[in-house]
Write a protein that binds this DNA or RNA. Structure first.
Lengths: 194, 194
DNA sequence: ACTGGGATTGACACTATGTCAAGTCAACAT
DNA sequence: ATGTTGACTTGACATAGTGTCAATCCCAGT
C-alpha cells in the first residue's frame, strides 16, 4: 500500500501502454516492459503474475484514464435519435485513435487468450449497449428504417463502429479521422434512418 | 520432381490448411503439422524453409483450389451495376466461410510478419479491384450516390466486405451466412446507389 | 551393386514465459 | 541500535516453440 508500490505498478502500466501504442499489435515482451521502467524482469512478476494479467490491468488502467464515461457528457446532451447518433459517432471516432494501440494488443491475443478477449469484449459491449439505445430512440421516433428489426439495426450499427472498420478506412485507405467521422455519420444515417 | 516429393508437400499443405480451419486463428505449430501428416517435424523443413513460407504456400495452395476466379463466372454474366453488385456479394459471401480459417491464420500474423501480410493483402486487393469496377459501372449508369466520390465509394464497399465485418456479424452476432448476404446486399445498395 | 534424395533421429542454439531461492537495501518499528 | 518487513535484484532453472545441423537409414532408378 506504500506509495512506492503503487508507483512502480503505475509505471509498469504506463510503460506497457506506451509500448502497445508504439508496437501496434506486435506482441510486447515482459523484458521490454521491465527495461522501459528500469527494473528487472522479475520485478514485473511481483506486480502482475502473468503477461495476461498485465494486459488486462493495462486495459483497466487506460479505461480509468481515457474512460468513455466522461466523454459521454456530449452524448447526454443530445435528445433526439439523430442527434444521439451523431454524438455517438463523434465521441467514439475521437476515442478510437487514443486507444488504438491497446485495442490492437488485446485483439491480437483474442484467439489465444480467453481472458484478454473477455476484457476487450467488455469494452465493446458498452458500445453495443449505446448503439442499442440509439436504435431504440430512433424506433420510438418512428424513424428507424423498416428494412431492419431493432436487433439487426443495433448489430449493423455496432459492426460499422468496430475498430477493424475504423482501421481499414483510416490505416488502409488513408482517410483522415475527421473524414471517418463525417462519412460514417452519413453512412449510418443512410442505413438506419427511414 | 518425383510424385513422392510433391505428394508429401501437398499432404503438408493440406494438413496445414485443415489445422488452420480447426484452430481458427490460434497459431499452428510445425510439430502439429508434421504429426498430422505422419512425418517428422524436420521433414516439414525439407519442403518449407520456415513457418512463414509454409503459411504463404498454404495460401497459394488454397487459392489454387478455391480460387475466386472460377467463381466469378456468375459475376461475369451480370451486366448492370446493380446485378454486378448483387453477384459480387453472393460470390464473396459464399467464399468467405470456405477460407475463413486461412484468413484468420494469415491475419493473425499480419502485425508480426510482413511476408504473410503481403500474401493476404494480395488477395484483398483482388476484391478491391472488383469493388472499384462495380462502382465505375454504377457511375457510368448515373446510379452512384453523389454523396461519395468513386474512390470513397470503392473504399466503403471494400471495407463493408472485409472478413472482419463478416466475422463480427456471423460469429459475434450469430447471423446466418444467408442473412449476411441478403442484408449486406440491401445495405450496400442503400449506401452506394442513388 | 551404387548412388542420390526423401526421410529419420537426436542434438543444439535461441527466444520467450514463468518459477524459484537467496540475498540486498531502505524504511520503519520497538 | 537493532530487527523486521517488503520491494527489488541476481541468477538459475523448467518449459515450449522455431530453426539448424550432422549422422544415418532406406528405397528407387541407373
Amino acid at each position: 500500500m506504500s506509495s512506492q508500490h503503487s508507483d512502480t505498478r503505475t509505471q509498469i502500466l504506463q510503460a506497457t501502454w506506451q509500448l502497445m501504442e508504439q508496437h501496434l499489435g506486435q506482441p510486447i515482451k515482459m523484458g521490454d516492459v521491465a527495461k522501459a521502467v528500469g527494473i528487472s524482469r522479475q520485478a514485473v512478476y511481483l506486480h502482475f503474475k502473468s503477461r495476461t494479467e498485465l494486459m488486462i490491468a493495462t486495459s483497466n488502467y487506460v479505461d480509468e484514464i481515457k474512460g468513455l464515461n466522461e466523454r459521454l457528457n456530449i452524448y447526454k446532451k443530445a435528445t433526439t435519435g439523430v442527434e444521439r447518433l451523431e454524438a455517438c459517432v463523434e465521441v467514439w471516432g475521437h476515442y478510437i485513435p487514443e486507444i488504438y494501440g491497446l485495442a490492437k494488443a488485446l485483439l491480437a491475443t483474442r484467439d489465444t487468450d480467453e481472458a484478454t478477449a473477455a476484457a476487450w469484449n467488455n469494452n465493446m459491449h458498452c458500445l453495443r449497449d449505446l448503439c442499442q439505445e440509439i436504435v431504440e430512440t430512433l424506433k420510438q421516433e418512428g424513424l428507424l428504417n423498416s428494412a431492419w428489426s431493432p436487433e439487426e439495426a443495433t448489430e449493423i450499427f455496432w459492426t460499422m463502429m468496430s475498430i477493424h472498420h475504423w482501421e481499414q478506412l483510416t490505416v488502409e485507405c488513408a482517410w483522415s479521422n475527421q473524414q471517418y467521422i463525417d462519412k460514417m455519420t452519413v453512412m449510418l444515417k443512410k442505413m438506419l434512418i427511414k
